[in-house]
């Protein structure tokens, strides 16, 4: 069974008197364990689609199901709880809390779980180890390089052990070499830890690392083989 299933997904934004159609009937299935890259021109609706799959927003019409759960039927409160347990987010600009150390940033999502303080610490340490930053646990984001900050963000995304990682241009702000390291890390998470990954990217080299590439244009999908 597919992990993610989108059926005739539509999304429009109302801006003043204008209504902008951003997604225009998306049909998509992503299998458990996939590593999928989403490409397309700026403004084609990639982020919007990712937000719907990640349960950050509601579709205007159509259905989106993740792990058999119909997201379009859930309330904002239910979605928040569901995201905490099922989705890991990685953003282009890392979006770490500058006042917290790397360790505490990673621990953040675990504050929503019933885990003990000691267990939370242990899990955060494990996640930092997976991304190769165990020696930077005490550093604040300001004391880390861009690549390191993105690793911390990835550690935060996986700490609650979600099935699906949603990454919006995770290497968009990094140089080639650092980008390759991040992509290798995502590969490891996909192949060794069994995470299903959807990654939006503008970088063809990044897309090559994925098992499958989807192209978007003007709110529609055009599938092509990897």
């Amino acid at each position: 069974m597919a992990l993610v299933r989108c059926q005739d997904l539509q999304k429009s934004f109302v801006k003043g008197r204008e209504t902008v159609e951003v997604l225009d009937g998306i049909n998509l299935e992503i299998q458990q364990g996939d590593f999928l890259a989403l490409m397309g021109p700026s403004g084609s609706g990639k982020t919007t689609l990712l937000n719907l799959i990640g349960g950050l927003d509601h579709p205007s019409a159509g259905a989106v199901e993740v792990g058999g759960v119909p997201l379009n039927e859930m309330s904002a409160r239910q979605l928040a709880k569901w995201r905490a347990e099922n989705i890991g987010f990685v953003f282009q600009f890392y979006n770490l809390l500058p006042v917290l150390s790397a360790q505490r940033n990673v621990e953040l999502p675990l504050l929503l779980t019933p885990l003990s303080s000691r267990q939370r610490k242990a899990n955060a340490a494990t996640a930092l180890k997976i991304v190769g930053l165990e020696d930077r646990a005490k550093h604040k984001p300001g004391e880390l390089s861009g690549g390191q900050q993105q690793r911390v963000a990835i550690a935060r995304a996986i700490v609650a052990d979600p099935t699906l990682l949603v990454c919006d241009e995770p290497t968009g702000d990094l140089d080639r070499e650092t980008a390759d390291e991040i992509l290798s890390l995502l590969e490891v998470l996909n192949q060794e830890h069994g995470k299903t990954i959807i990654m939006v990217t503008h970088d063809p080299k990044a897309a090559e690392r994925a098992a499958q590439v989807l192209r978007m244009d003007k709110g529609r999908l055009a599938q092509e083989a990897a």
Binding site: L56, R77, A80, K81, R83, A84, N95, P109, L112
Partner: peptide, 14 residues
């Protein structure tokens, strides 16, 4: 604002 958005994204309720 972005930090609060991230908190919400990772599952903190409104």
């Amino acid at each position: 604002v972005p930090e609060l958005a991230v908190l919400k994204a990772v599952g903190f309720g409104d």
